[in-house]
Design a protein around this nucleic acid. Structure first.
Lengths: 211, 211
DNA sequence: ACGGATTCTGACTGGCCGTCAGATTTTCGG
DNA sequence: CCGAAAATCTGACGGCCAGTCAGAATCCGT
């Protein structure tokens, strides 16, 4: 296996082409954030970097392929979050640690929300590639979460009817979607820090069984 | 205010037209489920009921308008779920009640997932109309959930650092997204009933503070 | 069965997608 | 520094779909 960067036709590309490809990815991310997937046009992406649609198709077979790569890049940024999820949260420091995780997760989400939304939509609609990327990203966190939950179940702090894998998925699910609600909740009086504190309390409770 | 059904130009329509409009809505829902929003074409919707694109545009200014109406219809189906969320869950019967709520929610989700996904995407991307429909739907459940959570906080079963509104949002968030993961989790060994039981346990715990 | 109102559609314009042949720029041996 | 080969980029085009409109088809009351 190789980390070489390829054009759409599979050939390895040089420095200039890599720069063009990178600019196209950045432009895709920018327009995805500004306009959303439903109004994303290849013409616009190309125009954004002063080139023609044909150039885009040199590097990607279609828009999905570019977004998929952005989603993989997002997964890279998600990896450091695992550091916050090591077993051993205590009743005394667990809430603080949960808060630190939530802070890191919120920053991650702010950076990548546009791409992650599309990743999740396409995954839910059954696209194989997007499913794979999403699963890989989720398993990063879920592996750690599962260990912590198992620990809690073993220690009798958590009910045996909690399936560790499913519970881990539920925690990730809660994080993801609650942040999607954020702008609306702000209008109804829930500030970012309220969301942060509540989310931290919930995660702390679910994972450790402490109240 | 009136419940009359209008064409795209605002005129009230008769019985035949209402039937056509209904067929268009059903076809839209069907194709949305089968192909997803990104491949949804007005030509296909029209062809599905053996008519021309022009007919579609008689009744809806664009595809969004049709989906928005489907989303409103989904909200109607969500209303009965509130019955499951009345305060007074006890340590003895709470888990069973939570399970009944989850069952009802899963059925609701199965019926409307394709439309709800698009509703959520458009809402998250900032569309005013979809935001409104989503908020209204969520508030249905959240109003009841908030009451139950307040009760728990007042009784000292839940920590004061839980903001009732945000916690209610978190519960709804968890339900929504976890069901989006369902097909993938099935592949990894989490059956529908495992998800059901875990979700019920979590909701019971979050709402009542009992373990 | 006639006339007006309602409902439906053929046909068209304009715009974006995705392709390809060839133009432009870079690289490199000599 | 030159010229040719390789790498990169793009103008222009066919095809498909969105959305519009004038007028055709159907329905309904009398």
């Amino acid at each position: 296996m190789s980390d070489d960067i390829h054009a759409a036709d599979g050939r390895i590309i040089g420095a200039r082409a890599q720069a063009t490809r990178r600019k196209l990815l950045d432009a895709t991310a920018k327009l995805l954030t500004e306009q959303g997937i439903l109004d994303l046009r290849v013409v616009d992406i190309s125009r954004e970097i002063g080139t023609s649609p044909a150039t885009f198709y040199h590097y990607f077979n279609d828009v999905d392929e570019a977004i998929l790569e952005l989603a993989s890049e997002a997964t890279e940024d998600e990896k450091p979050l695992v550091d916050h999820l090591k077993p051993g949260w205590t009743e005394a420091d667990g809430l603080r640690r949960a808060g630190e995780f939530v802070d890191a997760y919120m920053t991650f989400w702010d950076t990548h929300h546009a791409v992650l939304r599309v990743r999740n939509l396409k995954a839910e609609e059954g696209d194989r590639h997007f499913r794979k990327v999403r699963t890989e990203a989720n398993l990063l966190l879920m592996d750690s979460l599962q260990d912590m939950i198992r620990e809690g179940v073993a220690a009798g702090r958590l009910p045996k009817s909690l399936d560790p894998f499913t519970t881990a998925a539920a925690v990730v699910a809660m994080c993801e979607r609650l942040l999607g609600y954020q702008p609306e909740m702000a209008k109804r009086g829930s500030s970012k820090s309220t969301i942060r504190d509540t989310l931290a309390t919930l995660i702390f409770g679910i994972i450790t069984g402490h109240v």
